[in-house]
């Protein structure tokens, strides 16, 4: 499988592309399309569940992406259809392909070049998408751009989870990547209701001439994000998310902050958007595991919507 002659396919328009079209037929979700090309892999396990819902795992060969990889996935969720998108393990972003893959032809890997992932989702009326991947982990010097756009038609619902961890802490990597740029944008009909753009990069990586002589030591990315090593952002929108948002909102309002002498292990915030038809939640945690268990518990209400058998596959 790894002998796949990627170099010869470099000019192919389908490299890294994938497409999912799911729709509801007689209370079963069927895929009229489920296709992908290296290095993207899509897998839909059979689900035995009380609720009509489908899962697709988004994966990459070798368990990660390298500089120059460009993944592009387009998803159509049909009327009344529920789709859950998951990953198996965190999306690892390498500067170059690790291990023996580093010996691949140079045409395959451009060291230090950007890795991109694009996702375009269209949601028909009354449909729902739950995008609950594992976090993205950018390794040292990796450069990653992610652009995710969601187009909702009336009464469609969506939960988008986007999270990033600080790197391989066991190797001393802490926010040591070059660049992480993530855009999540939600449109309802044609109206833009949310556009979240997060840019994490080392200061002056592009403009070192801005270093002021005599100024204090430069403030690095890890200084800015300390003491946390994982940041998550959730966008929740639409009727199927109401219960989950109401419960989170209730818990949020119960918080009362008194002066503390050091930061808490986990911090989260919630803001309603678009006249409370949706919400944006942000979470920061000392460890990725802290954030994961918080998310698992905060989104527990989804069990009623996608079924317990499906929900328990997220946040493993």
């Amino acid at each position: 499988m790894s002998a796949f002659p990627l170099g010869k396919r470099a000019g192919s328009i389908t490299a890294g592309h994938g497409r999912i079209a799911a729709s509801l037929h007689n209370s079963t979700v069927v895929f009229s399309e489920l296709s992908c090309a290296y290095p993207l892999k899509l897998l839909s396990p059979h689900v035995t569940n009380a609720v009509a819902v489908a899962i697709v795992y988004m994966m990459s060969y070798g368990g990660g992406l390298v500089g120059g990889d460009c993944v592009k996935l387009s998803v159509d969720v049909g009327k009344g259809t529920k789709l859950v998108l998951l990953t198996q393990g965190s999306t690892k972003v390498f500067k170059t392909r690790p291990g023996k893959r580093a010996s691949a032809p140079s045409a395959v890997t451009l060291p230090g070049s950007i890795t991109t992932q694009k996702l375009d989702v269209t949601l028909a009326p009354q449909s729902a998408l739950f995008l609950l991947p594992d976090p993205v982990t950018c390794f040292r010097s990796a450069s990653y751009v992610q652009v995710q756009k969601f187009h909702l038609l009336e009464d469609a619902s969506i939960i988008v989870l986007d999270w990033v961890s600080s790197g391989r802490k066991s190797l001393g990597e802490e926010w040591a990547f070059t660049r992480y740029y993530s855009i999540n944008e939600v449109f309802v009909d044609t109206r833009r209701v949310a556009r979240d753009v997060l840019l994490l990069e080392e200061p002056d990586s592009h403009d070192s001439d801005l270093q002021q002589p005599g100024s204090a030591s430069p403030r690095m990315l890890k200084d800015r994000l300390a003491p946390y090593s994982c940041y998550a952002m959730l966008i929740l929108y639409g009727p199927l998310t109401r219960g989950v948002v109401a419960e989170m909102s209730r818990k949020y309002q119960e918080i009362s902050v008194y002066k503390t002498i050091s930061p808490e292990r986990l911090l989260w915030s919630l803001s309603h958007i678009d006249d409370s038809k949706g919400a944006v939640v942000r979470v920061a945690g000392i460890e990725t595991e802290d954030v994961k268990s918080w998310l698992r518990s905060a989104l527990r209400g989804l069990e009623d919507i996608v079924g317990n058998d499906v929900y328990c596959k997220a946040f493993l």
Partner: peptide, 26 residues
């Protein structure tokens, strides 16, 4: 809104660079 084309310009626009600041401000 429905122009899903993506360009390099998309990543040169306004962005938040301090997620911790967002959480604390909220």
């Amino acid at each position: 809104a429905h122009d899903s084309s993506w360009s390099d310009e998309d990543v040169a626009g306004p962005a938040t660079t301090w997620p911790l600041g967002e959480i604390l401000a909220t």
